[in-house]
């Protein structure tokens, strides 16, 4: 019988799922993804995690609990770094340890370290480590990894063409509502696990679309452009997300076709506290573009979110019609 590998639907699921799925399936494993985020998953995560953790990590706990009795393995790699010279966040590096020492009666955790800080080649090393759980044949693992990379590339190229990862992962088609007023272009900056978890962001993406908003996220931008804009910082950001967010935001500020920026922040996120602040300062100091910060926390209510989104979009439409003279900050 095929071994069951559990993938919690949280954190880097939103970035790497296509790669993991192909890899495990090629190796003959069966994949079980935890349910889509719901109240019960969120509550159980919040209850079992230390109070001080950021919301995405608490939620991840909930997804682990949702899976733990259904699988032979839990796939919780130790993500130290996914890019040369950069890190992700201390919590990603310590995640398997946090889980192991806070939750009880877990199946075996596949906690292979992914550390590309020194060299990209370590990715294959990590793949072999993970692959060894299912096959002792290096060739099989290598071929599975190649195929997995192809799936990942295809996913990335779709995203770059403008399909949101959330649409691909939840198999929901994003339709822009054409019947309403003229289209507005908004850039949303935030961690993938905030942007594409529809429960956590209260269907923000779909709501915006139904208001006739076309969405750009940093995953759609060209890496070169991001790097180039990063040169504007006196010291390079060492967080992979931070670099992309800052570079992406700086680039977006210079584009004439983007009408406004939303920063989607998670409550308790140490990285966001710096990245969002730097971007906000830059916007306020240099460009008259509408900018707003929306924070997702355990208690954010849907009504409040709707009001803020509507007000923001109305303000932009009004500005577009009346050309400036309206304060840009919501």
């Amino acid at each position: 019988m095929a071994k069951k590998v559990g993938i919690p639907r949280g954190l880097f699921y939103y970035q790497y799922y296509p790669l993991w799925k192909t890899f495990f399936e090629e190796l003959g494993a069966e994949i079980v993804v935890s349910d889509f985020t719901n109240k019960q998953i969120l509550d159980s995560g919040v209850k079992s995690c230390v109070d001080e953790a950021c919301l995405p990590v608490k939620l991840f706990y909930g997804h682990v609990l949702n899976l733990k009795d259904k699988v032979d393995y839990l796939f919780i790699p130790r993500f130290t770094s996914i890019s040369k010279g950069e890190y992700i966040c201390p919590k990603f590096g310590g995640l398997p340890d946090m889980i192991r020492h806070s939750l009880k009666e877990l199946p075996e955790i596949i906690d292979t370290e992914v550390n590309l800080r020194k060299s990209k080649k370590n990715a294959f090393k990590a793949a072999v480590d993970v692959g060894n759980y299912f096959s002792s044949d290096r060739h099989v693992i290598k071929s599975a990894y190649q195929k997995a990379l192809n799936s990942y590339r295809e996913f990335r190229s779709n995203v770059r063409k403008g399909v949101l990862p959330g649409d691909i992962l939840s198999k929901r088609r994003g339709v822009l509502n054409k019947s309403s007023d003229e289209t507005v272009n908004i850039a949303i900056i935030g961690h993938v696990y905030n942007l594409y978890d529809n429960y956590m962001n209260m269907d923000m993406i779909y709501k915006l679309r139904s208001m006739g908003v076309n969405i750009t996220t940093i995953e759609m931008l060209d890496g070169k452009v991001i790097d180039e804009k990063n040169q504007m910082l006196p010291k390079k950001m060492f967080w992979n997300f931070g670099r992309k967010a800052v570079g992406g935001a700086f680039h977006i500020m210079e584009r004439e076709d983007i009408d406004g920026i939303i920063y989607l922040m998670s409550f308790g996120c140490g990285v966001d506290s710096f990245v969002c602040d730097l971007i906000e300062r830059k916007v306020r100091n240099t460009k008259d573009i509408p900018f707003t910060v929306l924070t997702i926390d355990e208690h954010s209510g849907e009504a409040g979110m709707n009001t803020r989104l509507e007000a923001f979009i109305d303000m932009i439409r009004w500005r577009n019609r009346n050309e400036a003279d309206v304060p840009a900050y919501g």
Partner: peptide, 9 residues
């Protein structure tokens, strides 16, 4: 961030 990880352990 690092101490939150430590606290969990």
């Amino acid at each position: 961030m690092p101490e939150i990880v430590a606290e969990s352990i």
